[in-house]
């Protein structure tokens, strides 16, 4: 593999990073790189494998390790998924979660684009301090805010309504998205806007016609990140929503599927698996954007 790569002379410089490792022998490389890497991947993925296999197991296999190999399933069943979809409110929880995540994401993107544009391009006095304040806002964790927010939500009459989540999720989404978009706008050449200004475009036209189309990758990154963050959110949804039919998936799986002392592990795992699938699919389509937003936000 290494030889084949080294033999290709027209490889563009800097595209593949081979570094000093080219001099290493193959057996040494297997021990120092491939085996540890394989172990990492196995450990990181095992809980998902375990989730899937538990979902598919019928009860007699699930609770009998001596007669059935626990790592495999001999007679797979969809009974757990069936029970989850047709005997609980699971589809409704999925819809609520989706609704909250999508609306909160668009609301945050709207606010963040305008704020990032103002901070990075309109450049007013003290704009760098506003940028810093927004960065600091990202560091305020929900665990500190949920108690006062719960009292506010109660007084506003939003308790037990998805609207409470839609309005509070932007508190951690806007800082992140704004920070990401500031970095992205910075990479768009200012000259383009100057040309448009000279041609008589208004500021809003410039934002709409020039800056935003160029910033689409940044918008996608921010949007995906915001969507997964809202899908994952737990503490606000746990504190602000009480009735079973308005819960989001993470909260509902934990509070509604555990009934008494007997855990139906099959349907619990099915609930966890189905709740993870939408994010995983979404993620798989936009991996590169996701990675760039994750690393971009840190590097910025």
């Amino acid at each position: 593999m290494t030889d084949a790569v080294a033999d290709r002379p027209e490889r563009p410089a800097g595209q593949e990073r081979q570094g000093p490792m080219v001099w290493e022998s193959v057996p040494r490389r297997v021990i120092t790189v491939y085996i540890p890497l394989a172990l990492f991947v196995i450990v990181l993925l095992f809980p998902f494998y375990w989730m899937t296999i538990t979902t598919l197991k019928p009860n007699e296999e699930l609770y009998n390790y001596s007669e059935h190999n626990p790592f495999w399933v001999t007679s797979p069943t969809l009974a757990n998924i069936n029970r989850l979809l047709f005997e609980t409110d699971y589809p409704r929880w999925l819809m609520i979660t989706m609704l909250v995540a999508v609306v909160a994401t668009f609301l945050s993107l709207f606010c963040s684009v305008l704020a990032a544009y103002a901070i990075q391009r309109l450049r007013f006095r003290g704009s760098q301090w506003v940028g810093l304040a927004i960065y600091l806002a990202y560091l305020v964790p929900p665990s500190i805010l949920f108690i006062p927010l719960a009292t506010m939500v109660f007084r506003l009459g939003l308790f037990d309504s998805p609207l409470a989540l839609i309005l509070t999720y932007p508190t951690f989404l806007i800082p992140f998205c704004t920070w990401l978009l500031i970095g992205y706008f910075k990479s768009i050449p200012y000259e383009l806007e100057e040309c448009a200004l000279i041609d008589g475009a208004s500021r809003l036209q410039i934002l709409w016609r020039i800056t935003l189309p160029l910033a689409v990758p940044g918008l996608i990154s921010a949007g995906i990140f915001a969507f997964t963050l809202s899908w994952n959110e737990f503490i606000y949804a746990l504190a602000f929503i009480q009735s079973a039919e308005n819960k989001t998936v993470p909260v509902a799986v934990l509070t509604q599927l555990v009934v008494g002392d007997v855990y139906h592990w099959g349907s619990l795992m099915a609930g966890a698996l189905l709740g993870s699938v939408p994010v995983a699919i979404f993620y798989s389509f936009f991996v590169e954007y996701y990675v760039s937003s994750l690393t971009g936000a840190v590097k910025e």
Partner: peptide
């Protein structure tokens, strides 16, 4: 790299249940 990020994107509570 994409596979390795999966534990991070899946909702924490759901992997905690696993």
């Amino acid at each position: 790299r994409a596979i390795i990020l999966v534990p991070w994107i899946v909702p924490t509570v759901l992997s905690a249940i696993a």
